[in-house]
Every structure is written in structure tokens, then in C-alpha cells.
Simulated assay, not measured.
Amino acid sequence: MGGGNGAKSQQARERNAAKAGKGPSSQLKSNAAAMSIQCNICKQAFQSTAKKPMLDQHVDSKHSKQGFAACFPNYTA
């Protein structure tokens, strides 16, 4: 015979218990590890996926006198 509501509820409880055993699913640690671009002047970190326009915005707002090369000398496009 078919599974009633009781069987479905039991399966849902088992699924949720299995998910709870896996631990937190936060990406905070992986995001922190991806912060590989750093401004040489103020030491602010950026993710490795940061594009040049985002870094240009940082230079314009924080270090307009020093320029892009002074902030990010190792940056390659």
C-alpha cells in the first residue's frame, strides 16, 4: 500500500537529521581565504575575483594622489 502522511513526515525528519549532521553551510571561511588582492597602502583585502573597475574605485576614493600602481603593483588583468 501507499505511504501515508506519517511515512512522509518520518522521511522528512530523517532527511533533516542528515542535513543537520553535516555541519554549518556558511561560506565565511572560504570567502576569507579568497581575499588574495591587497592594497599596499591601507592593506584592505579584496577577493581574487575583483575586477579592475572595482579596484579603480578604491584607488579613486581612498588613494587618488598615489595612483593605481602604488596601491596594486602586482595586479595583472
Rank of each mutant, 00 (worst) to 15 (best):
L28K: 15
M54R: 15
N40F: 08
N31G: 03
A17M: 01
P24L: 02
R13H: 07
A50C: 13
A18C: 04
Q57M: 07
A18M: 05
K29D: 14
A17V: 02
R13W: 03
N31P: 01
Q47F: 08
F46H: 05
K43H: 14
S61R: 12
N31H: 09
T49Y: 10
T49C: 07
V59L: 00
Q38F: 14
G23Y: 01
R13K: 15
S61C: 03
Q47R: 12
S48Q: 12
K52H: 13
A20Q: 09
K29C: 05
N16A: 10
A32T: 07
Q27A: 06
Q27F: 05
T49H: 10
H63N: 07
S30F: 05
N16K: 11
T49N: 10
S26M: 06
K19A: 04
I37Y: 03
R15I: 04
S36G: 11
A45P: 02
S26Y: 09
T49L: 03
P53W: 10
S61T: 09
A18E: 08
R15K: 13
S26D: 15
L55V: 11
E14I: 10
N16E: 06
K43N: 09
Q38V: 14
F46Q: 00
K22P: 06
D60I: 12
I37T: 08
K22H: 12
S61D: 05
S36D: 07
Q27Y: 07
A33D: 12
V59E: 00
N31D: 05
S30H: 07
C42I: 00
P24A: 05
Q38P: 13
Q57C: 06
S30R: 13
S48I: 07
R15C: 02
V59W: 00
M54G: 11
L28Q: 14
N16V: 06
Q57P: 00
A20R: 11
N40E: 11
A32N: 09
K43F: 14
L55A: 10
S64W: 14
H63I: 07
M54P: 09
A50K: 11
N40H: 15
K22Y: 12
I41D: 02
Q38A: 12
V59C: 00
V59A: 00
